Simulated scan of single mutants.
Amino acid sequence: MIVDLPSSTTSAVNKKIVELREKGGVLALGRVLTLVIVTNDGAELEPAVEAANAASREHPCRVIVVARGARKAAPRLDAQIRVGGDAGASEVIVLRGYGPLADGEAAAGMVMPLLLPDAPVVAWWPGEAPAVPSQDPVGRLAQRRITDALASRNPIKAIEQRRANHVPGDTDLTWTRLTPWRALLATALDGPPHEPVLSATVAGETVSPSTDLMAGWLAARLNAKVKRSPNDGGPGLTSVRLDRPSGPVELVRPDGKVGWLRQPGQPDRQVALMRREVRDCLAEELRRLDHDEPYAEALAGWSKVSRGRTPVKAVL
């Protein structure tokens, strides 16, 4: 069900939500958080809502979408409420402010009356995010702030801004996309021969922030030299090599779909390493609402990484 409320107010939106609940019983009350999505253009809105709806099946929540309208217009708030099959396991409220209501401070003011009481608030920017999310008017309302440097016009500049302005509660989906890689590498090192890593090489696209974060994480975790090398032959992160006395542990993914794990004394193992969907990354981030310490360590470890200029070719 979709209910449009043109030229409305937040009070009218709240009243309509209560009316829908009492009249049709279409809204459940077991929401665990409020997810505020800040979009910069119309193209971002529907994909972001679809991702939030998919994630809401694991984390029932109220979704508030701030969709900025034309700034050169008379002050007006157009609202829309989506419930039932159009909202997954959540209730979706779309707020589009025009004129002065399109600014950040006004957006935060519109969001506040609609936040669920006594529930955590998570802010998500699916596209371009502010340089300092924690200082953004909407970001100040949230315990967790999710960005996605890969969706920025300049992903490397965006992740550098995250590094320079990181505070507890910040995270980025370029980090979440590394979860399968980190799990496979940690599992490989947990098994015998339990040798120390002498050095590591991480290769990926020049414009891949995930590759930089992987190198930073290894530099923070290993007492070894870590080198970040370019490899523009495949999408995103393409390979990680961990050198040990008995031989290297290598995880290679040249095509963005299937990876190969190689270890001394063991047959090569094929592993699924498909590039993760945004909805899966978002669902993972909503599982934890505390400080993401490994992400902070990866950002801090960035300064310890050496940069290689020679492109690395992933070999199967």
Score class of each variant (00 low, 15 high):
H166E: 15
H166R: 13
V167T: 15
P168S: 12
P168D: 14
G169R: 08
G169A: 14
D170F: 11
D170R: 03
T171M: 03
T171K: 04
T171C: 14
D172N: 13
D172Y: 11
L173W: 07
T174C: 15
T174Q: 00
T174A: 13
T176Q: 15
R177S: 13
R177F: 07
L178R: 10
L185R: 12
A186K: 12
A186V: 06
T187D: 15
T187F: 11
A188K: 05
A188P: 01
A188L: 06
A188F: 10
D190K: 11
D190M: 13
D190Q: 13
P192K: 07
E195T: 00
P196I: 07
P196D: 14
P196F: 04
V197G: 02
V197N: 01
L198H: 08
L198S: 11
L198R: 08
A200I: 00
T201K: 06
T201H: 09
V202N: 10
V202L: 06
V202T: 07
V202F: 08
A203Q: 04
T206A: 05
V207M: 09
V207Y: 04
S210L: 02
T211S: 03
D212F: 05
D212G: 07
D212E: 05
L213H: 03
A215W: 01
A215M: 05
G216A: 01
G216S: 00
W217E: 06
L218G: 04
L218P: 07
L218S: 03
L218A: 04
A219Y: 01
A220Q: 00
A220G: 03
R221K: 14
L222G: 04
L222V: 12
A224W: 01
A224G: 12
A224I: 05
K227S: 06
R228P: 01
R228H: 04
S229F: 03
P230I: 02
P230K: 07
G233S: 09
P235Y: 07
P235E: 05
P235R: 07
G236L: 00
L237G: 05
L237Y: 02
L237E: 11
T238R: 04
T238G: 07
S239G: 15
V240A: 14
V240T: 13
R244L: 08
R244D: 08
P245E: 10
P245V: 08
G247C: 09
G247Q: 12
V249M: 12
V249T: 15
E250C: 11
E250M: 15
L251Y: 15
L251V: 15
L251E: 13
L251G: 09
V252A: 11
R253M: 14
P254R: 05
P254Q: 08
D255F: 11
D255C: 11
G256P: 05
K257I: 14
K257N: 12
V258K: 12
V258G: 05
V258R: 07
G259Q: 04
W260E: 05
L261R: 03
L261Q: 01
R262M: 15
Q263G: 02
P264K: 02
P264S: 01
G265C: 02
P267R: 15
